[in-house]
């Protein structure tokens, strides 16, 4: 399973307006729900994880990857990605503020590893988060993925 199998064009939105981190997670989650990739309760679960364990999902400067367990209502492995019109604080001292949010839904522990490995390759380039933030549409986001893969 490749990154582009998870990150499908309908799961990408650019320049999304949100007022705080919870709304950012909800917007990224909404794309997964509309796609049929997760049940609505999965979105609540992603928010609960941050409330319980803290803002560790801000994995790199400007980049958050909310996720929840498969049992929380994951239907098919998917990744949604939104860029924010205005950055939000998650409360992570190292990596705030966040302007790209990618919500991960995985049906198990194994099948998405190749795709995540590819995501790690892409994000190993420091400029990628900035480039995504400036992208004008889903097509540009995917072109950046392709370029660094």
């Amino acid at each position: 399973m490749l990154l582009t199998d998870l990150l499908r064009p309908n799961l990408i939105a650019v320049n999304v307006h949100v007022s705080d981190w919870q709304e950012a997670v909800r917007e990224a989650g909404r794309l997964l729900v509309e796609d049929g990739a997760v049940e609505p309760r999965f979105v609540d679960a992603m928010i609960e994880v941050v409330k319980e364990f803290g803002p560790y999902i801000v994995l790199a400067p400007g980049f958050a990857m909310p996720h929840a367990k498969a049992e929380a209502g994951c239907i098919k492995s998917s990744l949604s990605l939104i860029t924010l019109a205005e950055p939000v604080e998650f409360g992570n001292p190292e990596n705030d503020p966040v302007y790209v949010v990618a919500a991960l839904a995985a049906v198990d522990h194994g099948s998405h590893i190749e795709a995540l490995s590819q995501l790690a390759d892409v994000l190993a380039n420091d400029s990628v988060v900035d480039e995504w933030a400036k992208a004008k549409d889903a097509d540009e986001i995917l072109k950046i993925v392709e370029y660094y893969s």
Partner: peptide, 9 residues
């Protein structure tokens, strides 16, 4: 915390 997202990266 969950062992499937961050820890995999």
């Amino acid at each position: 915390p969950q062992g499937l997202g961050s820890s995999l990266i």
